[in-house]
Write a protein that binds this DNA or RNA. Structure first.
Lengths: 191, 191
DNA sequence: GTCTATATATTGATAGAC
DNA sequence: GTCTATCAATATATAGAC
């Protein structure tokens, strides 16, 4: 928990976030980060003692971003159905990046879910943010007992179709599936 | 295309298949394969000149297995609806492994879909096998124009819920979602 | 805080005896 | 076909001058 706001530290995190997303964590080397930032090796170690520490910071940074996004939606949209539609719209809006590199949360969890990684839980917390937020929206929209199951159903469909769009290089697959989900949201009974 | 049927070569492929699945390709080293098989480094290089060549062989091996599975289903089940149900049942049956390590095809494509991998296309062909087979079943069951979209929808949902089951360590999530898919299959109009 | 130089371990890969 | 010994490149990480 540093209280300083050094630009260099932010640059490292932003570069690592991009590289981990596009190349994966294991395949991204310190040299990649050095080349991409222009910051020298020794200086990076001044801010992060290990590569794992950079990963921690990247995950924290993503968590901050997603929390801010969901918080902004909460403030702008009082209707839970509109909030769910906003989530669906976000996926559709990001379909080009999703097609190119996959879902940043999904692919990170896929990589870090493998054996001998100690970041499984912190990566999972990125999913928790959306799962809990979606659960709250489904709960206030209808049957609270089914809210969590519906949230995981929705997250799963978004992740699955993102993977298919990625594998088959087709953003329209993502748009079509999310349209089906939008129709499903429209049919849900109000509370 | 070797015509010899050496046991050593098969041992290497089987060990690599297991390790690539559980640890990921990038994180699996030659030392891992040596330790897991008991075969010495130099001997492995007698069968495979590079690590990439082992990956090629593992993907080919998986393709052979999946083709055999689908072919067996074709022979045993004349009704396309039963064949679709058989696919759903396979996912449910594998839910423990899917929960522990994720989907072997999905996680492989997620890793190899990242930048600077030259195995993207061969990994995608594993999905092609199921996509094309599912497309054929949907086509003979009803509207052929929607068959491919339905196949990708089904594959996406299976992949997505496998990821959620993996991330949240909950095989029941997979069973529940695949049950929904089974209900959907039951409602499809016959040709 | 930033840099150069370097340490140390591990990686994929080779050479060659048997 | 199997093995030991080793290579060259790259990985993460450290030491210390400025």
């Amino acid at each position: 928990m540093k209280t300083t706001h050094g630009q260099t530290r932010e640059h490292i995190i932003e570069a690592a976030k991009l590289l981990f997303y596009r190349r994966g964590y294991a395949r991204t080397s310190f040299s990649d980060i050095v080349e991409h930032t222009g910051i020298q090796r020794g200086n990076i170690y001044h801010y992060f003692k290990t590569k794992d520490a950079i990963l921690d910071a990247v995950i924290e940074q993503r968590a901050r971003e997603y929390r801010a996004t969901l918080s902004a939606w909460d403030k702008a949209l009082p209707d839970p159905r509109d909030r769910l539609r906003r989530f669906v719209h976000m996926v559709v809006s990001n379909r080009e990046d999703l097609t190119r590199y996959g879902c940043p949360i999904g692919s990170l969890n896929t990589e870090l879910g493998k054996e001998e990684y100690r970041h499984r839980e912190s990566a999972r917390r990125l999913f928790d943010l959306f799962r809990d937020w979606l659960t709250a929206q489904f709960a206030s929209l209808g049957d609270p007992g089914q809210a969590r199951a519906r949230a995981l159903h929705l997250l799963g469909r978004a992740e699955g179709i993102s993977l298919m769009g990625h594998v088959y290089n087709d953003p329209d697959l993502i748009a079509a599936e999310m349209d089906l989900i939008g129709q499903w949201i429209d049919t849900l009974e109000p509370a």
